[in-house]
Amino acid sequence: MIQAIAFYLLATVSVVSALLVVTAKNPVHSVLWLITTFFSAAGLFVMLGAEFLAMLLVVVYVGAVAVLFLFVVMMLDVDFVQLREGYAKYFPLAAIVGLILLAEMIVVAVAAAQGGAARGAELIPATDVSNVEAIGRVLYTEYVYIFQAAGLVLLVAMIGAIVLTLRYKPNIKRQDIGRQVNRRQSDAYANVQAESGKGVTLEDLK
């Protein structure tokens, strides 16, 4: 009973907040709703017995990705009014496409409910190993190929970010710590015998 209540609560919250992500007027609000969606999805993961994935979702998506989004959205100079300009114009077309997709999804959902999704697969037997252990056992063995390839994808993303953004500017003034540390007193200033009352000109300092 309490499980059912928790499930429906979390499911409703995640669907509603997902809707609000796309309908919120202010992108900052969208990101905040996105965080709510992630949290309720994490709750659903916990109910499935996947605590580790729930933690990952919160740490990675809420902690890193969503906060990064928030930074980007706040730093970009987006004109929210201008962003909304085409809304009324494109709404009818978008509504038609959305309705068609919705109808198709319902057909699939009904098919899934009747035929039963994944009926061809046997259920994974419940074992006493923890989430982390279960993932750890297959990640570097059965899925090592995919895991390494995903690493390569990240490498490409990193190279790409550097290629597209890093610029070497030859005339820029950079801090050279070695030179700073090696600077001696004699390089920095010299004693000039200045006569009293005459002042010092630039020529004397050369």
Binding site: A149, L152, V153
Partner: peptide, 13 residues
């Protein structure tokens, strides 16, 4: 999927 992503990500750049 991973193959397609690896290839496309390099091509975007």
């Amino acid at each position: 999927y991973v193959g397609v992503e690896l290839q496309s990500l390099a091509l975007y750049v």
